[in-house]
Design a protein around this nucleic acid. Structure first.
Lengths: 353, 353
DNA sequence: TTGTACGCGTTATCAA
DNA sequence: TTGATAACGCGTACAA
């Protein structure tokens, strides 16, 4: 600060230059300043700097909530990547409420963040409120729960591929009547998981039967109820692909209540790699969502947009490749009785960015 | 901004007063300004305001990491409470590393936060680096992993009480040889859980036997190894109180591998209310840590310090009351054979703030 | 009730 | 290579 300038009999300009590693500064002077700064343990005021430069080192995050396995892990990835790049993160929760989401955006706007990372609330149907960011030129990246289209920056798991891999695995285990416990179809993630399920069935020449699909909100009880409903069909399923682990757990518990063996009588696969999938008996087959990678990819993309400052940046959509984790709940005792059907066009994974 | 002032032919001062609800402002004028502000959707610049007033609306959080059940839930509570009070939160991870923790503090200092909430890293042995905050008059509250002493603000779970309740419950179930899987004793939480365990034994007139305590890092495998070690004793335990759920899970799995029935042959209780405790078979008895309440209490305390601005504030230590969740893993078929010993002095819960 | 003038800490611009 | 000056957006004495 001014103290340093006085003590060294130079101007504040010189101090500023020394500290910010400006090119026009003598190495000798620079060392002197830095040394004295240490001694007084000078702490730069990011606010003043941001105010002057119009650029802060803050990123905003808006998530529906910070709980469960997914969002905390993504936030973990975001914070790690941001911190590495010299940014701090401000975190906001929308509590699955659009109105709150709107307030979050205003709040971040006021905090002068350099960019925003968003995962949409469940009740967000239109996204006019994000135009406010656009009009201020604030870089924006959606992750996981995204706005669809090619004029936005997004980072998602390739959920279709996840559903595809999972269902294909069940087919390879010899299952021929595979049911699906689906989630709310207005969310891209559940829509795509269902699509992957159908893609795998079609590829294997199995019927795409809507009566084998039960729509739920992915709750544990709904998984149980869903399976009950499916078992009452003329041809009950010999496998279930659930779009979420809680739902899969509910189904598995219900199966055992009904005296069925898992995976022998009915194989089960979930989605999300919740920690309890390794605790349940039998361990539940699931799909890992690469939470941390998603956070890091989102930050990487956001920083690219920020650093492209002005230079027209064409929006990018990144899809991460999911990982199928095969566990006991879907592993038939006499495995691979049926060879894996060979891939055809429809099975190609989407481009991975 | 200036635009509004020009449009209304008044000074910026007037605008400022209208927006900040100053007392000396005409209601008519105030309405006009607010209306125009909406129209232009004016967004206050918190940085400029903070710079001018020397007070920001930002709180800093430093946690070891954002994963698992505990920290995300506390952060959830913190963000909720802070947001309600008009604050935003900046979150930092120390990754269990003191050096990183130090950098986090510098970072928050530079961001001009109004106060800091900290849960210490595992490798933090001294805490001189927090003096830097003190010397700048920055309010500081520790939570969960705290500095001990009465000259700091802390919010913790009453871990001693948790250990006590858990052990007392096992005794009431008729168990007489109760072992303890303990955690690193330099962390207050594990030290206190162990203390509660001993308190309950003493109260019931049972021997306090160090050979029944195995020290671990609370990992699942260590729980299994710990139980193996205990079962090799001349008088093997008929119950185990583990200071963490992962450890309890490992012990339970090991018990079943050895052909023992849980809880009949050995009863098991854990700590933390991890979500898998409800998935494991049998469900695991555990202690809920009131994560969200902890976050909210920490924010409440921090805001008190902030608002006491200058007025000498005497540090406070808050302890939250834990909740014992009794599940099948510790519930003997013929329960309450032994009456609960009556409480004596040592069993009194500590004051709850 | 309103306006004027200045300063918070930093940096960009221009001149030396 | 360095210095003087103004400005970022807002809030607050003080005067009107």
């Amino acid at each position: 600060m001014a103290d340093l300038a006085r003590e060294l009999n130079v101007s504040m300009t010189t101090i500023s230059r020394a500290l910010s590693d400006h090119f026009s500064i003598g190495p000798a002077m620079k060392q002197k300043v830095l040394k004295l700064a240490k001694k007084y343990n000078y702490q730069p005021n990011h606010m003043a700097s941001a105010l002057r430069k119009g650029k802060s080192k803050l990123l905003g995050i808006v998530v529906p909530y910070i709980e469960g396995r997914f969002f905390p892990s993504v936030v973990h990835g975001i914070e790690t990547a941001a911190s590495k790049a010299g940014y701090n993160v401000i975190i906001c929760q929308s509590n699955e409420d659009v109105a709150q989401e709107r307030r979050n955006l205003d709040s971040l706007l006021s905090a002068q963040v350099a960019g925003v990372l968003v995962s949409l609330s469940r009740t967000t149907l239109d996204h006019k409120h994000f135009d406010k960011l656009r009009s201020r030129g604030l870089p924006l990246v959606y992750f996981d729960r995204v706005v669809e289209g090619d004029n936005v920056n997004t980072v998602v798991l390739d959920d279709r591929e996840g559903g595809y891999l999972s269902t294909r695995h069940l087919i390879a285990q010899g299952c021929r009547h595979i049911a699906h416990l689906a989630g709310p179809q207005h969310l891209n993630i559940y829509k795509n998981r269902r699509q992957g399920y159908f893609d795998a069935l079609r590829e294997a020449g199995l019927p795409e039967d809507e009566s084998m699909v039960v729509y739920t909100d992915m709750l544990q009880e709904q998984g149980a109820a869903g399976l009950r409903q499916l078992l009452a069909l003329p041809t009950p399923p010999d496998a279930v692909f659930a779009a979420g682990d809680f739902c899969a757990l509910g189904a598995m518990q219900e199966a055992r209540r009904q005296g069925l063996r898992v995976p022998d009588d009915v194989a089960i696969a979930g989605f999300s790699n919740e920690s309890f999938t390794l605790v349940a008996e039998p361990n539940i087959t699931t799909v890992d969502q690469r939470c941390e990678e998603m956070g890091q990819a989102a930050v990487r993309l956001l920083l690219e947009v920020i650093n492209s400052a002005g230079a027209a940046f064409s929006p990018r959509q990144v899809a991460l490749r999911p990982e199928l984790l095969v566990r006991a709940s879907s592993l038939r005792p006499a495995p691979a009785a049926t060879p894996v059907p060979k891939k055809v066009a429809v099975s190609r994974p989407k481009a991975v960015g």
